[in-house]
Design a protein around this nucleic acid. Structure first.
Lengths: 361, 361
DNA sequence: ACCGATCATGACAGCGCTGTCATGTAGGTT
DNA sequence: AACCTACATGACAGCGCTGTCATGATCGGT
């Protein structure tokens, strides 16, 4: 402490000025520094009159440095606004940076943004940052973006997969990178994944309708290339089987992807000689389309949609839903990932997050 | 090409096995490699029988390598699943990684998730990834998270500021890091920023109401600590002035932050001896609260809310709004940031993104 | 007063990669 | 044949940092 005051002025004044032995002295060093912007540990060390390693010790809170020295280094660091270069630190430690990658389809979709929030939350508690990337429902982009994340040195990643084949990921996984899939399982690859209970959620909804006496229950869903569609249709079928109801194929419409297409599908259902008295829709877009069609036709059809959406309760009539828990999905996926990062080995796990039937009326 | 086939077998078989000069040979190297996971350029080089630098040339597509060599290196890289360590590359180049930071308050808010999408889009086109961080409306967190991003070596960052003082950022900015503020301007700091046209948007809405003959127009808004509140209230006042209407303070309620509080505020307005015939609300949460209160009271009050929200048109009655363009805000902010990164200097710029009055009825 | 133990500190190599410069080789010129 | 000019390739230092080990100083014990 006491030699701090007597020492600092010298070291401060001296070290940074040093060059005095020639005219061709590379001022480049100084110049270079400006390019990167940040001051380095070496500069702090020179300022504080200690070795680089001692600065490293202080910055990282390692023990075995005298209080006086700590103080001196801290002040020097303060005075030049030093901040550690995490990338370099990670490199030297031969470990990945505290960052996890997240690949989703479309952030403007509420489902994904909530999922992202869940991931972000858990990442933050674990002192990690989230490197975000959007696949825009494009398989090539998903692939390249995934590999880009891997190259960026993330510790692990969470993927909402879109492409049909995640084989390309096995290299990355073999190389020690943990990957957790969420919302849909990986294809051609076994890996951790976190899913909504699609079959059961759909089953419950349709069961509810059946219990209320409905015998003709329609289904509007995407085409069967989408994993969730398949599951939710299965739930619909299971519920029928359990209720002893036959599935009438004319009530099952697969294909619509937009709200308008769904509305059209609903109109065609309503025009049937023996139209459905209830309807189950497979996602919120389709739900909304069907709802519109019902409203326009002033039809009295009981509706339950998969996936909740804002204001569903404020519509007239309000919309009952099978609510997923996107934030929970994200959280669980992140927690699973961090448990892997913490060294938990063992077989790939599949976590199923329950859904909740919300009847609004 | 032709010497490739004759050469590969040798080099492949030989190089990795090399150690044969002692018993104490550090197998640790091999061990270490497994820890990081990824193979390195050195390994690819050994495999291909070339120098590390040549591998670097091939991987980075630098010119001046013979086609045959390129091929050999490519195959070697393929065979071990090589992927470059971007962090190390960035370090060696003494430049930041191709990553921009984004700090927002809450991803589960549609406004922010759309904004994020805009940023993400532009980042992707520019070959950058987005490092996401949430401030959770907590100033300390905003501060620490911002500095964490800076330490992570982002090229620049986009901030939706929450804290009242961004002075702490000036160090970072001085160090050469570009920062763009979005949705709200920086405080105690001049820097680039991208804003919605809050005053004008609000003014237009209130002007519209006034033109429709309304003389008593209410206002429900947050307290005045929030930048956007201030602006939107100003727009309300300006419209009154232009229409020659007095502002009746009993019609202006500041403070509500939740939907319920807004509903309460609306109820109290309706109980006034001379209640408003129209209402302007300052954000979608407050809009919804007021709408609920109006519906519950079966009151006939013309409503325009700032900020659009999903399904506003499906409500009964539908809700007119001043729509912002959150994706556009994000895009513009990112574009401004990239123009800075591209070397565009000059004074701090302020970009104002227009709003759009959407009358639904 | 001597010796090993304890402690604070520093020197140095190396993380995985790139920039710079040196080296060696093949081809063309006189 | 001697020379110069590309050109392909490699050796080496260094980006900013950390781990390991060495060094010198300080201390108590006998």
């Amino acid at each position: 402490m006491q030699d701090f005051t007597s020492m600092t002025p010298d070291s401060i004044g001296e070290a940074p000025l040093a060059p005095s032995d020639g005219a061709v002295v590379p001022r480049r060093i100084d110049f270079h520094r400006r390019a990167t912007g940040h001051p380095t540990m070496a500069e702090v060390a020179a300022l504080a009159g200690v070795s680089l390693k001692t600065v490293s010790r202080v910055i990282n809170g390692e023990p075995g440095v005298q209080p006086g020295t700590i103080d001196r280094v801290r002040r020097a660091a303060q005075s030049v606004g030093y901040r550690r270069n995490d990338a370099a630190a990670a490199l030297a430690r031969a470990e990945p940076q505290a960052t996890i990658g997240l690949i989703i389809e479309d952030l403007s979709d509420a489902f994904y943004s909530h999922l992202t929030r869940g991931v972000q939350e858990v990442a933050q508690t674990n002192g990690h940052l989230v490197l975000l990337s959007s696949s825009e429902e494009n398989s090539d982009l998903e692939r390249s973006t995934t590999l880009a994340l891997a190259a960026r040195g993330v510790s692990g990643m969470i993927v909402v997969p879109h492409s049909d084949d995640h084989h390309y990921l096995s290299d990355v996984i073999d190389a020690g990178l943990s990957v957790v899939f969420v919302d849909r399982p990986p294809v051609h690859l076994t890996a951790d994944c976190v899913l909504s209970d699609n079959v059961e959620g759909a089953r419950q909804a349709v069961e509810y309708l059946a219990q209320r006496g409905h015998r003709r229950i329609g289904f509007i869903g995407n085409d069967m290339n989408v994993y969730t569609s398949t599951c939710r249709l299965r739930g619909y079928e299971v519920a029928h089987a359990q209720a002893g109801l036959p599935v009438d194929d004319s009530l099952v419409i697969l294909g619509p992807r937009t709200e308008a297409e769904s509305a059209q599908a609903m109109h065609s259902l309503l025009r049937l000689p023996d139209p459905p008295t209830a309807l189950f829709t497979q996602n919120s877009l389709l739900t909304l389309g069907a709802w519109r069609a019902m409203r326009d036709a002033a039809a009295q059809v009981a509706l339950i949609g998969f996936d909740d959406f804002g204001l569903a309760e404020l519509l007239d009539p309000p919309v009952s839903v099978v609510a997923q828990d996107p934030v929970g999905l994200g959280r669980q996926a992140a927690e699973l990932l961090f448990s892997r990062l913490a060294g938990e080995h063992g077989d790939a796990r599949e976590i199923v997050v329950p859904t909740r039937l919300i009847i609004r009326n």
